[in-house]
Design a protein around this nucleic acid. Structure first.
Lengths: 113, 113
DNA sequence: AATTCATACATCGAATGTCGATGGGAGACT
DNA sequence: AGTCTCCCATCGACATTCGATGTATGAATT
């Protein structure tokens, strides 16, 4: 029956950028944070996550370094760049604007003049 | 520089379904309503609109009939079906849930435990 | 010591949906 | 006659997400 609740396109970048504002983290952790914060309403598949991370890095919004994770394992830690912070602000503003616009349609009770 | 403010995937269906709750309308009018309600924040290209309308009809959420428009021109009027109303309820609920989940991430001030 | 589990990276193909461009045709108004 | 707005529609390009799949290592269990 098709997909019931996929992530809306473009939102994943915003979400990742935001989670990285509370410090660098590796992909696995980022996915965990988002899931926990949303009570698993938002689930990030690895097939979406890693391409997204690479995309962000390619655009200069995050940079990565290999370190050891909390579990003593090799992990690539991603950190927000200044450009990334700027991008986050822009995307967050666009998101708010978009949600507001959709709400206007959803809450309208009559036809526009 | 890529797209700045495209419609988020899946939202268009919801928007169309909603506009049709205040009566049948043809594609052109639906696009107008949405644009006017949102002060042109949301703009529906015809290359997105008509495929969407056909998609909705194919799934039995709307049905269409040819009539004359307010401007005395041939136009295909789309109307919500009972299944469409049900679908609208479902999509609206999913949308709310999604927006709420994103807000949880965006508003979080610290790492989850 | 062997097995299993959770962590952590990555890639692939399929599917979907949006966009910009393009093309037509029919009223209306100059 | 010409042009404007309305109204339908399709096409190819593009980006993104998803599920499946594969690798590997540390830690805990048996």
């Amino acid at each position: 029956m098709s997909r019931s609740m996929d992530l809306l396109q473009g939102t994943l970048d915003l979400l990742i950028l935001k989670t990285l504002t509370w410090g660098p983290g590796h992909g696995y952790a980022v996915a965990r944070w988002i899931e926990q914060l949303t009570g698993s309403t938002l689930q990030i598949g690895e097939g979406s996550l890693y391409p997204a991370l690479h995309r962000l890095e390619e655009r200069g919004w995050v940079k990565s370094e290999w370190h050891l994770s909390e579990h003593n394992r090799r992990a690539k830690f991603y950190a927000l760049t200044p450009k990334g912070r700027q991008q986050l602000r822009a995307e967050q503003a666009a998101w708010t604007q978009f949600v507001t616009a959709v709400a206007k349609v959803l809450d309208a009770t009559s036809l526009p003049a």
